Amino acid sequence: MIGVDDGPEGDAPEGDAPLSAIGSLAVIQAEGRRVGRLVRFNPAIVNAMWAVAWFVGFGCAFLAYGPDRLIPGWLGPAVAAALLVAAEVASFAYGMRVGSGIAGPSRTSAAMYGWSWTLGYVCLTVLNVALTHRGLSGPDVTLLWSGSSLLLAGVLHLTGGTLFRDPALYAVGVWTMVCAAVAVVAGVPGNFLVLAFAGGGGFAALAVYTGWVRPRRARR
C-alpha cells in the first residue's frame, strides 16, 4: 500500500521474531514444569485428606458411643462413614485426574491399582453385611467393620508401595495394619481412639513427610 513502509523485504514482524536458543530452552522448561504439575501425583494431598477423615470420623464415633455419649448416637457412625467415603472418592478422582496425563504401562498400572481399592471395599462390604445378617451384633460388628476395613487398607497400601517403589506408602501400609490389630484388641470404644489418634496421626505424619521433608531432601 502506498504510504506504508513495509521494511526490508523478507523481514518478519517484530512480534513474530524467532526465539533465540536460550529463549526456546526457557519456553521448553516452563512448559515441562507446567505439565509436570499436572501429571505429578502429590501424596501429601491424599494423606492429609485421610488424616482428617480418620481423626474427625472416628473421633465422632467415640463421642457418640455409650450411655454417656456427647453427641447423638446416630451422628458418630454417619460422620465417620461419610468422611471415609468422601476421602475414598476424592482420592480416586484425584488419582484419575493426574493419571489422565500419563500414557503407557504406568497409566495402566495406576488405574488397576485404583480400581483394586473400589473392588476390594465393595467385596468387603458384602462380606461384612452377610456376617451381620447371620447373627453377629453389638460391639463385635463394630470391631469387624473397623478391623477388616483397616486391614484391607493396609494390604492395599503395601501393594501400592511395592508397585510404585515408594517406601513411605509401604510404611503407612504397615502402620495401618498395626492400628487395625491394636484397635480390635482394645475393644469398643477404645478402638475408636486408636483409629482416630494412631491411624489419623499416621496419615498426618506421612502427609508432612511427603509434602515437606522428602521434597527438602530431594532439593538438597
Rank of each mutant, 00 (worst) to 15 (best):
E14M: 08
S24V: 10
L25V: 08
Q29E: 14
E31N: 06
R34H: 04
V39H: 08
F41W: 14
P43I: 05
A44L: 07
A44C: 08
A48L: 14
M49H: 07
M49F: 12
V52N: 01
W54T: 01
W54K: 02
V56N: 01
F58N: 00
L63R: 02
P72W: 11
G76A: 00
P77R: 06
P77M: 06
A86W: 08
A87T: 04
S91F: 00
S91D: 05
F92G: 01
G95D: 05
G95H: 04
G95M: 03
G99S: 13
P105C: 07
P105V: 05
P105E: 13
S106L: 14
W115E: 10
W117V: 05
V122Y: 11
T125G: 12
V126C: 10
T132V: 11
G135N: 04
S137D: 09
T142F: 14
T142W: 14
L143K: 09
S148E: 10
S149F: 14
L152R: 05
L152H: 07
L156M: 08
H157Y: 15
H157K: 05
G160I: 07
T162Q: 13
A168L: 14
A171K: 08
V172S: 09
V174F: 06
A181D: 03
A183Q: 04
G190C: 04
G190R: 10
N191F: 10
F192D: 00
V194W: 00
L195K: 01
G199S: 02
A204S: 01
A204W: 01
A205S: 02
V208R: 05
Y209A: 11
A218M: 09
